[in-house]
Amino acid sequence: MTKLLIIIVSAIFVNNIVVTQFLGVCPFLGVSKKVESAIGMGAAVTFVLGLASAISWLVQKYILNQFEIGYLQTITFILVIAALVQFVEMVVRKFSPSLYNALGVYLPLITTNCVVLGVAIININENYSIIEAFTNGVANALGFTLALVLFAGIRERLDFANVPKVFKGIPIALVTAGLMSIAFMGFAGLM
């Protein structure tokens, strides 16, 4: 139990996947102009990453390790993730049109979101059990959502700030992300 708690705190705050590990920076800069869309993206990633962590763990253990073809890991995982995203999209569209309206636009973007593939590989590298892998997946996705929502909140206000002309847009967003990263380093004391 304590181990799971450590995984959760570590993934959300201490080793936040976006601002300290640099995974998922593209959607972080791209989809974070509005708090609403940040929440939508975060929810979609949480959903997919939880499933992807569990499934990729099973694939690693019962297919790749069983046949000793560990070198096919990258290809297999990306295929699993792509298929999963397709599948989730179909299921959501069929059974919950309202959810599909909220998440639909973000789902196709997730296949090439490095958070998903990255966490799937980290789970294997760290020798996690399936429960730990699933927990790590969901916790990392929550960390991603947290960073995304906080950042979107800052950027909404940044629009009204008097930023030097050359810094307008992405440059000031990157500097803001850097300051956020410094703030997150303060969580190191939790470990």
Binding site: P171, L174, G178
Partner: peptide, 14 residues
């Protein structure tokens, strides 16, 4: 450290 990466790239783009 991680913050340096963000800030340096931001300044380079500016």
């Amino acid at each position: 450290l991680p913050p340096g990466a963000f800030i340096t790239l931001g300044c380079m783009l500016a």
